[in-house]
Simulated scan of single mutants.
Amino acid sequence: MAFKQELELYLQFVKLEKGLSENSVVAYRNDLERYFSYLQGYKKISDLAGVTLNHIEDFLNYLVDEEMLAAGSLARNISSIRGFHEFAVVEGITKANPAELVELPKKASKLPEVLSPDEIMAMLDSPDTSTDAGIRDKAILECLYGTGMRVSELTGLEKDRLIFEIGFIRVVGKGNKERLVPVGEVAQQAIEIYIEQVRGKFMSDKDPQKAKNKVFLNQRGGPLSRMSIWNIVQKAAKNADIQKNVYPHIFRHSFATHLLEGGADLRAVQEMLGHSSILTTEIYTHVDRSFLHQVHKEFHPRA
């Protein structure tokens, strides 16, 4: 991993010089490893000199959009990033501190962005299903929108958790908590076609255990990474000519919003999303209310 040497130097500093506890050091490591992975994977940056304030702000927005971090966790990530960049300047590793002026992302206080049903359909229809990769990609997109699961839940999904005979998928979420999520016929059919026609072709003859029973595989027989899902979603958005900022988690936002717009019970949506608190799910009621206001204004004679 890029930045590995700098990270180890910084962790040694906070442990020995600042006297932080082992748990705090582990938290710093997790925060910064995710930060560096984002810089390297999404921004193609391999050294600190190339990091700018915009890159850091993009990462924090990613944490809000993709990871749905709570305000406390987001603040800790900012502290980790600020501390690291300050250390890098003091130690002469780099000349500038791009984190000096970083603030909480504005998106943190905004409603989640969603796609319209038409935009979703355009993306779901965009993969080229005459190819093996296209069949897989369509199944992935249908699964994301059809269940509202997180990307990490999708990449970790195993075959024995597909309970299609009763129309459910057993999803393992944050904190290793399990929940049953209903899956519609369209998504179910797309996943079944992928498993029957494509998954076996992707499995490695030399190392069949590489797949570890995972549903969605890359063409080398291993489980798909979060970055792979990002690329699949980006490709679908481009092919569908979607102009909005599209990322994998937007399917989850759209899933919840479209259910509420259709009249679904908030508690039911909370259960399907795997939110431990109804307060987390309630953000989508604001999206729903704005939709209702729009409908009222458009169709009510006295609006």
Results as ranks from 00 to 15, higher is better:
Tyr62Pro: 01
Leu63Thr: 05
Glu66Asn: 04
Glu67Pro: 00
Met68Asn: 14
Met68Tyr: 06
Leu69Trp: 03
Ala70Gly: 13
Ala71Met: 03
Leu74Lys: 06
Ala75Glu: 08
Ala75Cys: 02
Arg76Asn: 05
Arg76Met: 03
Ile78Pro: 04
Ile78Gln: 07
Ser80His: 05
Ser80Asn: 05
Ser80Gln: 05
Ser80Leu: 04
Gly83Met: 03
Phe84Gln: 06
Glu86Asn: 07
Ala88Tyr: 02
Ala88Leu: 11
Val89Asp: 03
Val89Asn: 04
Val90Ser: 08
Glu91Val: 02
Glu91Gln: 14
Thr94Leu: 06
Lys95Thr: 10
Ala96Thr: 13
Asn97Asp: 12
Asn97Leu: 04
Pro98Arg: 10
Leu101Glu: 11
Val102Asp: 02
Val102Ile: 15
Glu103Tyr: 07
Leu104Gln: 12
Pro105Glu: 05
Lys106Gln: 11
Ala108Phe: 14
Ser109Pro: 00
Lys110Cys: 02
Lys110Pro: 00
Leu111Pro: 03
Val114Asp: 04
Val114Gln: 09
Ser116Asp: 07
Ser116Ile: 02
Ser116Gly: 03
Pro117Glu: 09
Asp118Glu: 15
Asp118Met: 12
Asp118Gln: 15
Asp118Gly: 10
Ile120Gln: 10
Ile120Ser: 09
Met123Arg: 10
Met123Pro: 06
Met123Tyr: 10
Leu124Asp: 05
Pro127Ile: 10
Asp128Phe: 07
Thr129Pro: 04
Ser130Ile: 07
Thr131Phe: 09
Ala133Pro: 00
Ala133Val: 14
Gly134Phe: 12
Ile135Gln: 13
Ile135Trp: 10
Ile135Glu: 12
Asp137Ile: 11
Lys138Asn: 10
Ala139Leu: 09
Ala139Met: 11
Ala139Ser: 13
Glu142Trp: 13
Gly146Tyr: 09
Gly146Val: 09
Gly146Gln: 07
Thr147Lys: 08
Gly148Tyr: 03
Met149Asp: 05
Val151Glu: 05
Val151Asn: 08
Val151Leu: 10
Ser152Trp: 05
Ser152Lys: 13
Thr155Gly: 04
Gly156Asp: 07
Leu157Gln: 10
Leu157Trp: 09
Leu157Val: 08
Leu157Lys: 12
Leu157Ala: 07
Lys159Pro: 00
Leu162Cys: 06
Ile163Pro: 00
Ile163Val: 12
Ile163Ala: 02
Phe164Asp: 01
Phe164Glu: 01
Glu165Leu: 11
Glu165His: 14
Ile169Pro: 05
Arg170Gly: 01
Arg170Glu: 06
Val171Met: 03
Val172Ile: 15
Gly175Lys: 09
Lys177Tyr: 04
Lys177Arg: 14
Glu178Gln: 14
Glu178Trp: 06
Arg179Asp: 02
Leu180Glu: 00
Leu180Met: 14
Pro182Leu: 00
Pro182Cys: 01
Pro182Trp: 00
Pro182Phe: 01
Val183Met: 11
Val183Ala: 01
Gly184Met: 04
Glu185Tyr: 09
Gln188Arg: 15
Gln189Asn: 13
Ala190Leu: 08
Glu192Asn: 11
Ile193Thr: 15
Ile193Glu: 12
Ile193Leu: 11
Ile193Cys: 01
Ile193Gly: 03
Ile195Glu: 08
Glu196Phe: 08
Glu196Arg: 15
Glu196Ser: 13
Gln197Ile: 02
Val198His: 08
Arg199Met: 03
Arg199Trp: 08
Lys201Ser: 08
Lys201Ala: 06
Met203Ala: 13
Met203Gln: 15
Asp207Glu: 13
Asp207Leu: 12
Pro208Ser: 10
Pro208Lys: 13
Gln209Trp: 07
